[in-house]
Amino acid sequence: MSNATSPSPEAAAPVPASRAPLLSVNGLRKHFPLKGGLFGRTTGVVRAVDGVSFDVAEGETLGIVGESGCGKSTTARLLVDLITPDDGQILLESRRLGVDLDVRELRRHVQMVFQDSYASLNPRLTMEDAIAFGPRVNGMPAAKATALAHELLAKVGLEPRRFAGRYPHELSGGQRQRVNIARALAFSPKIVILDEAVSALDKSVEAQVLNLLADLKKELGLTYIFISHDLNVVRYISDRVMVMYLGEVAEIGPVETLYANPTHPYTRALLAAMPSMDPDRRTEEAPLTGDPPNPINPPSGCRFHPRCAKAEGVCSAGSPGLFKLPSDRHLVACHAAIPGSGHSLAEMPA
């Protein structure tokens, strides 16, 4: 096992693993029924998120990567209960949603920034009203909420005097996304979910917003869940990375371990597909071919096996499940990495 001998990432980990996680997700599942036919019968099920579990420690940034349609955004929406999960638990500070934690409180602590900066702002509201809406809903007097909105505008680098009275169409994409961040911060949340929040921005603006996010995190002690398909950005901002494939977690681990030692063939393929700045460092592993299979009827066993170069009989027979590698906090769902799985590349059990 190559990972056993690799340098331990613990030293770089910002948070001791022993502490109770801030947010804990267990077996989260959401299937969307497909209605069709004459009487709206259910003709199929999209397995958007199928048994996803992960923890987020206080103060860290968890990056979530994966192809389009792998369930990243659905996971994000499930976390703030914009979509109700079919199954699974969401625990915030060990309090379980629906048991001793209500949705209102969860949403106050977990806020979200969406990809489309324009669509996420009401075109009829000024920026100060847009930011003040959340606090006012939660009972803050109007004047205080407006003052808070001005303060937050300044905090995200927009001069309140100039921007508070403006409408969304009068702002640039980067400015709008700053407003969206300010709006999320108006709740004084513990966790901010950034769902492709910088993906639609120009590269230079993207860098500015990323720096702003890093500054805010330091200043306010925030925890981020950063969803993106841009592996470079994820590497820059994340402490840990979770790779999703067709509604399941393929691999999760500290960012440097995962980028240096990708264990799941899918992670390897993703990293290999990253454009390199160095012409001598050419892609050696064949990049992925074809589209991801349809999540309506996902492949049996390991969902990646139809596209995997190392697939064997065992891969289509059963789902591997997340296996904890010897290097701490690095989990992978691949038969080839699980000792005794029956895969020819797997170690024999001791």
Binding site: V80, F114, D116, S120, L121, V137
Partner: peptide
């Protein structure tokens, strides 16, 4: 999405 954001505000 601004309706989603509003819903997320409770």
């Amino acid at each position: 999405e601004y309706i989603e954001a509003a819903r997320a505000s409770g």
